[in-house]
Every structure is written in C-alpha cells, then in structure tokens.
C-alpha cells in the first residue's frame, strides 16, 4: 500500500470521526443530510459484501467494518437519538434517493466487469459513491449555514477522493496489471463534484472566515 492510499483512507476515516464528533458533542445533526448518510450506508453494504467471501488483509477487513459500523451509527443518531433527531433539517433535506439509486443501478447492470450479482452490486456501489454527496451539497446550498465541522467533513471527504486519484496514478505506473477504468471514471466524477465546494471552502479559509456559500 502506498502513502497516497493510506492518506486517502485516513482522510475518509477522519471525515467520519468528525461527523460523529459533531453529533456527539453538540447533540445536533443540523446541516447534515440524512439522504447522503443513507446512500453512503448503501454504498458500504453493497461494496463490502465481499467480507463474506474474500480476504485481502487485516487492515482492509478492519476498515470495512469501521466504515459499516460508523455509517449505521450516524444513521442511528440521526433517526433515533432523542435530542439529535430533533435537529435534523427534514424540510430542507428533500433530495430523492431514487434519482441517484435507479440510474446507478441501471448503469451498473450495463457497464460492469462481469455480469454476476456480487460484481454488479460492487459496481453499483462505485457509481453510487460518486454521487452520494449530492444531497449533502444541495442541503448546504439551501441552508447556507455551514458550521465548521460540517465544512471540514465535506473537505476531508473530497480530500479522500483526490488522494485516491494520486494513488491510482501511482499504482498505474508501478503495477503493470493495474487498470480500472470504471473506478477511475467514477472517482473523477466524484472528485469533480467537490470542485465547487473546495473553491468556496478555500476562499473562506483564506479570508479567515466561516464557510459561506453564495
């Protein structure tokens, strides 16, 4: 494993820690999209089905379990915690799941490496992950009230993807058989979705202000 990959994974992990920290310390999930969290949970569940039939490394297994457990944990807080669930922006978080889930499922059935249940589900998770941040970005645009932790959460999620792209470039040059066009295309789309957010995030940061969206 190279440094870009490790840094990317740590950035991903850190973004999740931030979100749990925010919820736990402030007992609030204001500004967080439950739709995005549900989509990420679906991403992890469909992708990490391989926990049952393949083993790569202890590191991978542990990380997969952490991602699964933490995404269910976040959802549990947002849905069932007495104080936290009251802070959820239900009226603003109106993005419909099927707008993303259905096209990703159709695309996974058409464009995949192999037409098998596990492979299509894995491909579906790759496509869905690329766009799962959209409800969160829409919510951010609507509420315009971005607290520091939410801003940092999205920043680290974007950084995770950008670091994975560096990891892919590195592996492309160092591992002769490393080709994964489908994943690369989805990863580029995913990173691209953050471009706009990054721009405003860095601008606010430079100005030493809280993140403000136009």
């Amino acid at each position: 494993m190279n440094l870009f990959r490790l840094a990317g994974d740590m950035s991903h992990l850190f973004s999740i820690v931030l979100i749990l920290l925010k919820i736990y310390t402030s007992k609030s999930c204001a500004g967080l999209s439950m739709k995005t969290q549900e989509l990420y949970t679906l991403v992890f569940v469909t992708r990490y089905l391989d926990l049952f039939y393949s083993y790569v490394s202890l590191y991978n297994t542990v990380m997969k379990l952490i991602f699964l457990a933490s995404s269910f944990g976040i959802l549990w807080y947002m849905r069932y915690h007495k104080q936290v669930k009251q802070t959820y922006d239900r009226e603003q978080d109106t993005f419909r799941h099927y707008i993303l889930v259905v096209p990703c499922a159709v695309l996974a059935l058409i464009v995949n490496n192999e037409l098998s249940v596990t492979e299509v589900l894995w491909t579906f998770s790759i496509y869905l992950e690329a766009v799962a941040i959209l409800p969160q970005l829409v919510l951010l645009q609507r509420t315009k009230n971005v607290d520091n932790l939410t801003g940092q959460y999205i920043f680290f999620l974007g950084a995770y993807r950008a670091l994975y792209i560096l990891n892919w470039i590195y592996r492309y040059w160092t591992e002769p058989k490393y080709r994964q066009y489908l994943v690369w295309a989805a990863g580029l789309v995913q990173t691209g979705l953050y471009a706009d957010f990054f721009y405003y995030y860095l601008k606010s940061w430079q100005a030493g202000e809280k993140l403000r969206l136009p």
Partner: peptide
C-alpha cells in the same frame, strides 16, 4: 481477468 485483485482498495 485482472480486475479481481483490484478489489484490494476500500
């Protein structure tokens, strides 16, 4: 096929 071993990423 060589795509299987690329499942080593998260």
């Amino acid at each position: 096929e060589d795509f299987i071993d690329l499942k080593d990423e998260l």
